[in-house]
């Protein structure tokens, strides 16, 4: 059976979630692997959310926020970007492929771009194969 990745995604309320909504109302088809969690801002995505998602079995994590300069709270997306770089570095040190975490800016009008992004990211995680994080973290050896 082909591996179906579990993708957890955090979308900011004001742009990216609305963009995803637009993809839906435009009846665009995209990979069903994604589980969307709406946050008020990409700046609300605490690194704990990312680590917990990996621990609970996410194969890939996609964070989306407003384009630079467009954040509803002015600089939440910049905070997110800085955390993202730190997290990437950290998960690599922890023996996790950094490609499993991805950040992208999606505006409220970018339904099509969102659908394509989900397909692309799901494809890249499918290629990478299942994550071992859940199994390793939950079994003492």
């Amino acid at each position: 059976m082909e591996f179906e990745p579990t993708i957890v995604s955090f979308l900011c309320n004001w742009c990216s979630y609305t963009g995803a909504d637009l993809a839906g109302t435009s009846r665009l088809k995209y990979a069903h692997n994604i589980r969307i969690i709406r946050t008020m801002c990409s700046g609300r995505v605490d690194p704990t959310f990312v680590l917990e998602s990996f621990k609970k079995g996410a194969d890939g994590i996609l964070i989306c926020g407003c384009h630079p300069g467009d954040c509803h709270y002015h600089e939440g997306n910049y905070k997110c970007l800085r955390r993202y770089h730190l997290l990437k570095k950290y998960i690599k040190q922890m023996g996790i492929e950094p490609e499993r975490l991805h950040l992208e800016w999606i505006s409220a009008s970018e339904g099509k771009q969102f659908a394509e992004l989900v397909d692309r990211f799901t494809g890249s995680i499918r290629e990478l194969g299942p994550s071992r994080i859940k199994e390793v973290v939950n079994t003492l050896s």
Binding site: L51, F54, K55, M94, V137
Partner: peptide, 11 residues
């Protein structure tokens, strides 16, 4: 911590 240990020691 949440991740507890290095997951894959080859990476």
């Amino acid at each position: 911590s949440i991740l507890r240990r290095k997951i894959n020691t080859d990476i």
